[in-house]
Nucleic acid binder design. Structure first.
Lengths: 337, 337
DNA sequence: AGAGACGATGTGACCGTGCACATACAAGGA
DNA sequence: TCCTTGTATGTGCACGGTCACATCGTCTCT
């Protein structure tokens, strides 16, 4: 039937045009919803498209428009629950808007690594980037780099210029601490995240604010690394000093480790010490004792990021979101003094 | 200086050629490591590339070669720890090989949804797809669809044709069950994953195999949904019947919920009942009691998937991996009868 | 010395779109 | 009636690479 030279080639816009009896440009207009097309012509073209099972070639389109309809995610997280959940939100929102998503996991947060990652994404011609790089350092590197591409950072350092995007970490931490204060605790320790992390700073600030406002003593925060293992270690260390009755931990993983450490050291929670975490990971409601914590809507955060980024790409006014509210989930691990 | 008509255009292969005093084709050869290039010429070209900060346009390349150097991930998971970890492995391995990765989260596992997702990825012209769709149904839909694209499925249903990829779930479950048997338990219940999930089936099979071999009674497995909340519910239900002394749970989340349910119902673990989970999520070592579980290397699974997929794409012989070993992590939740 | 093989490079076409511009025809105002 | 304006469509080129083929010089073998 077909000539031997004819390989299985995908139908192109011209094949459609030939079948529909119009010019290729008319087909292009139909594809791009150009207003000046007679309904009759449009129908013919759509028929031909259906018959041939034609699909536009995105590479060709990207070549000529120099837009890829792709977003990049630059992730500098080790697979934490929060960021991972946000990524799902990002992907969903992006697909809904007709964008596909290319994810890049940063192995290190050195300026070189970040630079190379950005270059990689630029090569892929993404139209914009969502940065999930919760480290202060990363944030600064990005700022200094003068990225020539629209980008949105999920965790915005305080006092930054752009739109506020992250959930209100400070308020959440403050609420958690006030909860402990309300229970009658006056000696409250904070186990913080790593020095470099934006969220670690925010949560610590919320803790400090609440204590200062209540005129209570603050303790030098203990710097953790977000892992449950560190929490365990901290629990054992803290067992030696008994100058506190409550601990506010910067994330649930560490909090769960802490519970373990306390248990091994013979400290009872909440009888001897109250504990509050942050993030509300799915198992928080089931560990022993069940963990009081601060809930936040990670996927929604991702969705908002996409909306802002797309507005930026399209040159529209960016939607103004208020800070995402956090919710305190009170459970067994925190009890009255 | 420059003419007004000249927009900020990226340098092309021809700009490089002009500067280096060669033809555009020579530049192309340098970029593709063509053997027949004089070192001297190559150096000139590389210099010009550096001077202009030239970067090849991937869309143009994709257009002419009809290869995108992109892999797609088709994920049908709700954000479980395991698959998510595997995705990280996939992305890393893909980048190493010069591929970028486009992730697509499936919201439903209906044939239509899967079909539309596949079409979407095809539109994006990915060169191959890694499927993280642990449901039997998805697997069958894929098989029936005759996907015209190289793809690898992370969780392979038993008796499938291709390469075995998933960790040896059956063996892991068997080991876990044998561990309980070795502790003197003879009445062991299994809380399984959802009916449709491949891994749920494998783990159940391992459980049944071990019991049959030891000539012990089996119980009709309880079907869960992987969530900690379900585990809690199951714990409360199981508290009514006391015809067992051990439970093997198909994943850690449910196991942790189960511990909670038992605790609330006054059943002590491990004194009254032993519990073993599956996956070894990070908090498993810290819940109370610490959870015995089966460890598996999720990122490695992802990496292997990429290697197999790339071999398939390149038409090479697929590397043969043995099944990925699982490791039993014995902790407090399982004790002698 | 002539011929063929091979290495190094250049030339032009082509991939599948969108854009700028040209064209044809109909409608409306002076 | 003629000119203007607007709608519906067509024509050719550009985007930035790769591929097939042509060209030219050098080396080697007989």
């Amino acid at each position: 039937m077909s000539t031997a030279s004819e390989r299985a080639r995908m139908p192109s816009i011209r094949d459609v045009a030939r079948l529909a009896g119009v010019s290729h440009q008319t087909v292009s207009r139909v594809l791009n919803d150009h207003p000046s097309i007679r309904p009759e012509t449009k129908a013919k073209v759509l028929d031909a498209i259906a018959v041939l099972d034609y699909r536009p070639n995105l590479a060709a389109r990207a070549l000529v428009t120099s837009k890829s309809n792709m977003l990049g995610i630059l992730a500098a997280t080790v697979g934490e629950f929060g960021p991972t959940s946000s990524i799902v939100g990002i992907e969903d929102a992006a697909r809904e808007e007709g964008y596909s998503v290319s994810t890049l996991n940063l192995s290190a947060t050195t300026p070189e690594a970040i630079g190379s990652a950005l270059r990689q994404l630029a090569r892929e011609q993404v139209d914009g980037i969502v940065v999930l790089a919760p480290q202060v350092r990363t944030f600064h590197v990005l700022k200094g780099m003068a990225v020539e591409m629209p980008f949105v950072s999920l965790q915005t350092a305080s006092g930054s210029d752009g739109v506020t995007l992250s959930a209100d970490q400070v308020a959440g931490a403050r609420t958690a601490t006030e909860h402990l204060i309300g229970l009658g605790h006056s000696d409250i320790i904070h186990i913080a995240g790593p020095q470099d992390w934006i969220e670690a700073e925010s949560r610590m600030r919320g803790y400090l604010d609440a204590l200062r406002e209540a005129d209570l003593p603050t303790f030098p925060p203990i710097r953790g690394d977000w892992t449950a293992d560190f929490g365990y270690f901290a629990g054992q260390e803290l067992a030696r000093r008994r100058d506190f009755t409550a601990v506010f931990v910067a994330n649930d993983q560490m909090a769960i480790g802490l519970l373990h450490g306390f248990r091994d050291a013979g400290i009872r929670v909440p009888e001897d010490v109250s504990v509050v975490g942050f993030d509300d990971i799915p198992v928080a409601a089931h560990v022993a004792p069940t963990l009081s914590t601060v809930h936040q809507d990670f996927p929604e955060l991702g969705r908002r990021a996409v909306r802002i980024l797309l507005a930026q790409i399209r040159g529209e006014q960016a939607p103004q979101f208020g800070p995402l509210q956090t919710t305190l989930r009170t459970r067994e691990s925190s009890a009255p003094r």
